[in-house]
Simulated scan of single mutants.
Amino acid sequence: MEGIFVALAIPFKNGKLDEESLAKHVDSLTKAGVDGFYTFGTTSQGPYLTLEERRAALEVISRNTNRQLVVHVFSFDWQGIVETVRLAEKHGTIAISSIPPIYYGPDYEVLKRYYEKLTQLTKLPVFIYNIPRNTGFNVTPDLMAKLLSDGVKIAGVKDSTGDVAQIMGHVRLGITVLNGSDSTILPALMVGAKGCISAMSNVLPDVIRSMFDEFKAGRLQSAMEKQDLIARVRELIRDYPGVDGYYKLIHLLRYDFGTVKEPYLRPLSEAEVQKLRDGLIRLGLKPRV
């Protein structure tokens, strides 16, 4: 796995999956040159999606792209995980991913048993999705090394800590490392990450595509300028709850787009959207009226 994977925003409208917006979005991102899609993680509102919503979303995605697909499978119900893995296999997914078990705070033994059981479910490569600010648990390179030495068949990690030293530690283990923090995509590539799973790719796919290509071509100054813009746009939504900031950025910079699934998450207010619009203008971008 290498390149730009979109941490896909999955929109809702009037409380239901907005399949029309999702189809348009996936098609547009495919034409923008992304390498693949990462579904049902944080930006997808994955923990709050029902199995039927996951099934419907995968069908829409599969109909509207020929790009690689990675599916995040975590559920609070083990049978939900099993069914999501089966859906992933049905739709030609190249890998699956999961956060560690959350809420109770796993120790190493729980971590080991969980990922062992997950790898036994499928022949697909299994990635750990490490996002400690949401899970309360950090899968460090030391823990990853212990899992590997204990024979757990982990293929790689999506690391969303934004900690470049930690990403470097994962790289040293010889697994596939994908960066999950929009503000550190370029630094992560420079220390050996194979690519990114990026929420901001929903918003600025052309910029991130260009940054990745400039990096591969050795044009670091140009790549750094693009990374700076990505980080500045990300900063505009830093203090907003949930993921609707990304959804509103799509709406402001690209096309009409749905919102988040209530009441688990809330959409931004009109005043917050206006503040976001003003911030984009200050950055020299041109939001839609």
Rank of each mutant, 00 (worst) to 15 (best):
M1V: 14
G3I: 10
A7E: 00
L8N: 01
P11T: 05
F12G: 08
K13Y: 13
K16P: 00
E19P: 00
L22E: 02
V26A: 05
S28H: 04
V34P: 13
G36F: 05
Y38R: 03
G41V: 12
T43V: 15
S44F: 13
P47F: 11
L49A: 06
T50N: 08
E52W: 07
A57C: 06
E59R: 03
N64L: 07
R67I: 01
V71F: 11
H72C: 08
H72K: 09
V73G: 05
F76T: 13
E83Q: 14
G92F: 04
I99W: 00
I102R: 03
G105E: 09
E109C: 00
K112S: 04
Y114H: 14
Y115H: 12
Y115K: 13
Y115R: 12
T122V: 05
F127Y: 15
N130H: 10
P132F: 02
D142F: 11
M144E: 12
M144N: 10
A145Q: 10
G151S: 07
V157A: 06
T161G: 01
V164T: 11
G174H: 07
N179L: 06
G180M: 13
S181F: 11
S181N: 15
T184A: 12
T184M: 10
P187N: 09
A188W: 14
G192M: 09
S198K: 03
S201I: 08
N202G: 01
V203S: 03
S210R: 12
E214G: 04
K216R: 15
G218S: 04
Q221T: 13
R232Y: 01
R238F: 14
D244Q: 07
G245A: 08
Y246Q: 02
K248R: 15
I250T: 00
H251Q: 15
L253A: 07
D256P: 10
P263F: 11
L268H: 06
S269V: 11
S269Y: 13
E270A: 14
R282D: 14
L283H: 07
V289W: 06
